[in-house]
Nucleic acid binder design. Sequence first.
DNA 1: CTTGCTCCTGTAGCCACTACAGGAACTAAA
DNA 2: TTTAGTTCCTGTAGTGGCTACAGGAGCAAG
Lengths: 141, 141
Amino acid sequence: MFTIGKASEQSGVNIETIRYYEREGVVPKPGRSAGGRRLYSPDEIAKLRFVRRCRDLGFPISIIQTFLSLTEQDDRSCGEVKTLAENHLDEINAKIENLTRLREALLSLSSNCDEGTAACPMLDSLMKDGLGENRPEQARH
Amino acid sequence: MFTIGKASEQSGVNIETIRYYEREGVVPKPGRSAGGRRLYSPDEIAKLRFVRRCRDLGFPISIIQTFLSLTEQDDRSCGEVKTLAENHLDEINAKIENLTRLREALLSLSSNCDEGTAACPMLDSLMKDGLGENRPEQARH
DNA sequence: CTTGCTCCTGTAGCCACTACAGGAACTAAA
DNA sequence: TTTAGTTCCTGTAGTGGCTACAGGAGCAAG
């Protein structure tokens, strides 16, 4: 059994974040020592590491909770996982596209900017009236 | 002069967001009607539109505030704008790279997933011990 | 005058953490 | 055994950038 510090080291999850996950019910409450300290089994540490890796892949907590419940009852889990992963891939691709369009827009706006110029052409055109609004749908980065 | 509803329409900024920007000091407090309603001049609406466009480009509020103060005192603004825009471009590029790496990782993990499989290979390898940790630095999406 | 719309203030919620404050419990050296 | 240092505990508040109420007031048209 390991204290929260060791569990943090081994799982790569910040101590505060481990307690947060416990509060939110992402991972089950661990046992406690006589003095009231959390004690983690290797299995519980593996779960924390799993959550961390999923977060690194960009999955939201809600999906990770689904993953965790699927690993408990391990019948027919793979199809669901595949769907969830594919949806997440679509989101990642959408974000990449958005950011790429953003980059182009920003590049063309700032291209005329230079050290000496007094009235900045980028700021100017951003302040101008509504010609070519061209709003991104609801891309929030 | 325009009420907040019209200002919202013309600027593309949500009503609640306009009030939020006012509270936070992003835009100056507008005048009020006899009955206590906010009244916006075309200039103030242009400012709101400017903020919205900068947000669409992914700039954080703090940078947008710098932009706004630069448009007030319009001496030598362009060099600073250029630097800020370039830094932001770097961040966008870093995000794109991160997401691209994420996509590759997720693709290779989920490639062996399929409808029939019982023990999911993706979940399995995410749960496994620390071989090839390969942590992204601090990419949070 | 009434209906329905817009507006007002103030507060709480979202996501996924992170950062304290103030105190208790362990560990190791003197 | 005392002491110092470290780790842990709970609880609360803050981050960014909004969004969503609740409960009320103002205003325009029929």
